[in-house]
Simulated scan of single mutants.
Amino acid sequence: MIKLEHIILTKAEKSSDYFNKLKVVIQANYTKEISSTTPAMNPFTQQKVFRLFEIKGSFDENFLRNLLSGNFSNIINKYQVVHNYFLTCSLVYFSSFNIKDELKYRGLVDNRPNREAIRKEYVSTYDSSWTDILIQNSHPSFEKSEKAFNALIKDVKSKLTELNIGIGRILNYDMIKKFNNLRHVLLNHMGVEVCPYCNRQYITNYNYENEPKSTADVDHFYPKSIFTLFSLSLFNFVPSCQLCNSRFKSDKGIDILFPYEKGFSEDVRFKMMGGSVDSILGHDTEFELTLDVNGSAPHLRKLENSIRMFRHTETYQSHKNTVRELLFKNQAYNRTLQGDLQNLLKDMGLEQLSKRELNLFQFGYTLDPQDFGQRPLSKLVYDIYLQVQKHASYR
């Protein structure tokens, strides 16, 4: 998984005039909701839903701007109402975890006290003032059994669905369709060229009949069906390939790395395992590709979940030929030949190649982590190259 820089969202927002376009529609819906004889209510607070968008009784434009184009962490910390909303949505979204798997992962005995402890810990992780009263009044013993826990989640989900229907009357993803080609314009200005989830598939931005187009899916990292308030938030838009978005990730409630915050970086490295001397020389693919995970990484669980969700271990086996080619070229084009190339260019009166350019000439990749998002399989090639160089240094 490759980290995405925040600057691509800032660029997309400004270039597309995203905020100003949507503000007109959202503010009109807000005004309509105010005048409604049956305005939507927030069942957690018993307040009218349109109050979410207000400050001191008036439409809060700054809140909307932060919601549409601000950093998630900032807006969740800045606005208590968003903080409560996010925790409530998360309580529902991640609740499908398997308690037996959780016990096994933690190395705990599968008994009643441990089951109850995990349920209590889970709910406390996403506890908020919105759910406190509901738990105290209707589900005080939610941790006692799976049935009681599911009853709590069902109750919260029912109220959240009601709230999201109300929010949807003011703000929802379909509003982007009111503006011709806005989705494609955003994707083009983001400039993401390779799926950040898998680093295997190109995302193609192109022009057709003088209109920007893109082959990318817009993955709502936090599903719009549950996190409706974030359905138009740019920080919730992850340009991705269709396979990762629709087949692997979908709306599964699994806590994975958020591409705008973390990538695999050095905490996960591809490694070549097994094989013979011929494999090392790039003559065959009789080896396995594995992922070596830093066991002390602070976000270890998310790393492991990301690897499992996108089937990285399994899908990358189909790219052994790319590794074989790398290994072959590494043997065929040694440092001496690189020096000969530089001398040849010098004799021809041409500029010397930089290290990045030499790598690009030799391997087809710059081997620069900053370029991982520019070409599929860049992370794989980089990691295997480092492994080969490390091995060579010990020979």
Rank of each mutant, 00 (worst) to 15 (best):
Q342R: 07
R169V: 00
R269W: 01
L186V: 14
D17W: 09
T322L: 09
P376G: 05
E162K: 13
V24E: 13
L163A: 03
P298A: 10
T215R: 08
Y122I: 02
E193L: 11
Y18V: 02
L303D: 02
I203T: 04
S90Q: 00
M273W: 09
P196H: 04
T228Y: 02
L327V: 04
I55G: 10
L160E: 03
A28L: 10
F363G: 02
F248M: 12
N334F: 10
T125F: 10
I203V: 08
F50S: 06
H319N: 13
L345D: 06
G339Y: 12
S246Q: 15
L9K: 09
F142T: 03
K14T: 12
K249V: 05
Y79L: 03
I34N: 09
N114I: 07
R301T: 12
V192E: 04
K120Y: 08
S378N: 08
S250H: 14
S90L: 00
Q362K: 15
N62F: 12
S69V: 13
Y260S: 00
K379Y: 05
Y382V: 02
D155S: 15
N77P: 03
S16Y: 02
K78Q: 13
K144H: 13
L300Y: 15
E33L: 06
I254T: 11
R356V: 11
P369C: 02
G57I: 01
F361R: 11
P140C: 03
R106S: 07
K271L: 11
H184A: 12
Q46I: 08
W130F: 15
V194R: 03
T336F: 15
L337E: 11
Y385K: 12
K104F: 11
F59N: 06
L187K: 00
S15P: 02
R301W: 05
Q242C: 13
S240R: 02
K302W: 04
L360F: 13
R308Q: 14
E261K: 10
E121A: 13
V293E: 00
K159H: 10
G349S: 07
F372I: 06
L103G: 01
L103F: 00
H283R: 14
E61S: 15
K144L: 14
C198M: 05
R200K: 10
S214V: 03
K100H: 11
Q136Y: 09
M1E: 07
E357D: 12
S306M: 05
I256L: 03
V156N: 05
Y93W: 11
N111F: 05
A28W: 08
L182F: 04
L186P: 00
A151M: 07
D278G: 10
L257M: 05
G295P: 00
V156Q: 01
F86I: 00
N137H: 09
E61C: 02
F372R: 04
H312S: 06
R65Q: 12
Y18N: 04
F44M: 04
I34M: 11
R106M: 07
L232G: 05
